[in-house]
Design a binder for these strands. Structure first.
Lengths: 211, 211
DNA sequence: GTCTATAACTAGATAGAC
DNA sequence: GTCTATCTAGTTATAGAC
């Protein structure tokens, strides 16, 4: 019974940590702000996680794992670049509610010169990148784009864009700019998907010869 | 005389602030850490800037203005998408030394739920976006891509990518991933630049009809 | 496991000497 | 303008009661 209670408390603390980071940013994190958000005692942070850093690391990891698990089946079902951009658009829309990427972005910023957080962020990013890379690898196979971009490079670019996008979200005056941009990218991707065999060969040879 | 000394002290404080943010992140910022980095007295932060926040805001703004001023003539000389990606690649390489985008990214993260910093970040981002948008507007005029993307949307995407890229820089194991990705994007852009009039018209009509 | 109390420290900010 | 000294408030972390 005491074990079940312990688990519940840990859960509360992790959830409260995510909430504080989402609503006030990593700069507002302290054992007290977390305890207040979760309506628990401040000392429990240290009893269960050893330190505030340890709790933040755990929260970052769980927040990311949660989102990646939800996304995994959807990415597995993607068969075209257009479909991938569509999933990206939905993910961005869902972020307003869940804020998992925001948590990752904030902890990423806080991990500068902080080995403990850096380790947690590294593992969180790896969870994302695994999924994105696998999807891109699948889509790139047989695509002319593979002539100039490998999955690793594209993955890094895609992850960075998403992190930057969510970090800048609060600064945006118009909120439809991102969806507009994603729609445009989606149409470019769709055009690429729908290329006939002749244009496909032509594009491939152009990309191959471009210095 | 006392005025010249005052200006020198302000400069020292602003430079020290940038240095602490670059080397230790926004989380390590305090009147004392800044004063130590600049070898000046801690109380001077409040005498010259009123508060730590005020100093950080000023540093963010100056750091950005400095970089944007250096970039402006180079962007003005860009005439192709390939050229734009090339400038972006150089900018990324120079960041390792200067770290101006890193400062912006860190203050951006710290501006979450902080009106003072948010205002400074907003103005800093505007400085960047002005230049990027003007360049993209020029390049998009007459390009088939304009069928699906306007300069505003693309600017937001480009800025977000750059901020995310610099924020993730310390986490990258291999350091040539970004340059590889930029090289690939550059070849795609070059292919777009070199399109003949026939392919150009064909692409335009495809993009216009893509839903 | 959880709570109270507290030690040890660091933060922002200011008054007053120089 | 700059420095020392200091106040206040908030921080991590732990001992010990429950």
């Amino acid at each position: 019974m005491s074990d079940a209670r312990s688990v519940a408390t840990k859960r509360t603390l992790v959830a409260a940590t995510m909430q504080v980071i989402r609503e006030q940013g990593i700069g507002a994190i302290s054992a007290r702000s977390i305890a207040t958000a979760g309506s628990v005692n401040q000392a429990l942070v240290f009893y269960h996680f050893g330190s505030v850093e340890g709790l933040v690391a755990q929260a970052c990891l769980e927040s990311t794992a949660e989102r990646v698990a939800l996304l995994e089946p959807r990415l597995a079902a993607v068969t075209t670049f257009g479909g991938l951009v569509e999933v990206a658009g939905r993910l961005h829309a869902e972020e307003r509610e869940a804020g998992n990427v925001t948590v990752l972005a904030q902890v990423l910023a806080g991990s500068h010169a902080n080995p403990t957080l850096a380790e947690a962020v590294g593992r969180s990013l790896a969870l994302w990148n695994e999924q994105v890379r696998a999807t891109l690898q699948r889509l790139l196979a047989g695509s002319p784009v593979a002539e100039v971009l490998d999955a690793d490079a594209l993955t890094d670019l895609v992850s960075a864009t998403f992190v930057g996008l969510e970090l800048m979200e609060p600064t945006r005056s118009r909120e439809d700019v991102v969806s507009g941009a994603l729609a445009g990218i989606g149409r470019l991707a769709a055009a690429l998907d729908d290329l006939g065999p002749v244009s496909r060969r032509a594009l491939r040879s152009v990309l191959r010869s471009t210095p």
